[in-house]
C-alpha cells in the first residue's frame, strides 16, 4: 500500500485555545477516510490544517516527501495535489461555470516551476477547456458551462465545486461537510457523485451523513476535543463501538 499522507502529532491552537491535541493519521492511496464527531470538536480545523488553510502550531504533515507544516515549503504547489471541497461551495462568483473549472489548471500550466518550458497559451486553454467540458459532461451539466454560479441550485454548485477540485488532478481530496448546506432533496446527487469518485481517488470526508460514511469509507475516525478517540473499519466502528463517547455520539445521531 502506497502511503499518501502521514500526520504526526498535529496540534493547532487559536491563541490560548488548543483545538487539536496531537492527531496521528496515515492515509494510503485509495483510502476513503470519513471523519465524524460532535460540533466544535475540531473536524474542520483538522481538515484545514492538512492543506495549511490554517497553519498548524505543532506536529508534522508528510505529503509528497515534504513536511507541509514547515512554513518554508511551497504550499501552493502541494495544494494543487490536494483538492478541497467546502461546505458553502465557494465557486468563484465572477467566473462562469466553465471558467471556474478551467481557471486553476490554466493558470498553473501557464506558470510552470522555474526552468521548465512554458507551453503556448492557446494550447493550454484549449486543453483545459476540453477537460473542463468533459468533467461537466460527467456531472450532466454541460449546458451550464457558460452561466454564472448564482444561477445554479445548491446541488449543482457543489457538484461543480467538486469537479473544479478534480480538474487539478489531485492525489487527495478533502471534503468538509459537503452536503450540510444543501436542501435535503439535493443531498443525494452530491453523495452519488462522491460515491462514484471514491472508486478512483483518495478522500478524507468530514460528514454527518452516517449512511454514506458507513457504505463508502474503508476507515472511520471519531474526533472529540481535538483527539482521535476511535478509529476503525466501518463495520466494527458502527457495529461495535468501543469508546463511551462514540457510543453516546452514535446513539444520538443514528
Amino acid at each position: 500500500m502506497e502511503e499518501l499522507l502521514r500526520v504526526e502529532g498535529l496540534q493547532k491552537s487559536f491563541g490560548k485555545k488548543q483545538v487539536l491535541n496531537g492527531i496521528d493519521l496515515t492515509v494510503y492511496r485509495g483510502d476513503i477516510v470519513c471523519v465524524i464527531g460532535p460540533s466544535g470538536s475540531g473536524k474542520s480545523t483538522f481538515l484545514r490544517c492538512l492543506n495549511c488553510m490554517e497553519d498548524p502550531t505543532g506536529g508534522k504533515i508528510w505529503f509528497d516527501g515534504e513536511d507541509l507544516a514547515d512554513m518554508s515549503v511551497d504550499i501552493n504547489r502541494h495544494r494543487q495535489n490536494m483538492g478541497m471541497v467546502f461546505q458553502h461551495f465557494n465557486l468563484f462568483n465572477n467566473k462562469t461555470v466553465l471558467e471556474n473549472i478551467m481557471l486553476a489548471p490554466v493558470y498553473t500550466r501557464l506558470h510552470p516551476p522555474k526552468g521548465q518550458p512554458k507551453p503556448s497559451r492557446a494550447q493550454v486553454k484549449e486543453e483545459a477547456r476540453e477537460e473542463a467540458l468533459a468533467l461537466l459532461k460527467r456531472i450532466g451539466l454541460e449546458e451550464k458551462a457558460d452561466v454564472y454560479p448564482s444561477t445554479l441550485s445548491g446541488g449543482q454548485k457543489q457538484r461543480v465545486a467538486i469537479v473544479r477540485a478534480l480538474a487539478m488532478k489531485p492525489k487527495l481530496l478533502l471534503f468538509d461537510e459537503p452536503t450540510s448546506a444543501l436542501d435535503p432533496e439535493m443531498v443525494g446527487e452530491v453523495l452519488d457523485l462522491m460515491r462514484d469518485l471514491a472508486k478512483s481517488i483518495t478522500m478524507i470526508v468530514v460528514t454527518h451523513e452516517m449512511g454514506f460514511a458507513r457504505e463508502v469509507s474503508n476507515r472511520m475516525l471519531f474526533i472529540d476535543e481535538g483527539r482521535i478517540l476511535e478509529e476503525g473499519e466501518p463495520e466494527e466502528f458502527f457495529g461495535n463501538p468501543k469508546h463511551p463517547r462514540l457510543k453516546d455520539f452514535l446513539s444520538k445521531v443514528l
Binding site: N51, M53, Q80, F86, F89, N94, A104, Y107, R164
Partner: peptide
C-alpha cells in the same frame, strides 16, 4: 467579498496575490 472566495482560490493552489487579482478584486470593484 465572501472570505470563501479567497479560500477557494488558495485551496486550488493559487497564491494570495493571484487570487486577489483574479477573484477578489474584480468582485470588490463591482
Amino acid at each position: 467579498v465572501d472570505p470563501g472566495q479567497m479560500e477557494a482560490g488558495r485551496a486550488v493552489g493559487l497564491s494570495f496575490a493571484t487570487t486577489m487579482r483574479m477573484i477578489v478584486i474584480p468582485q470588490a470593484v463591482k
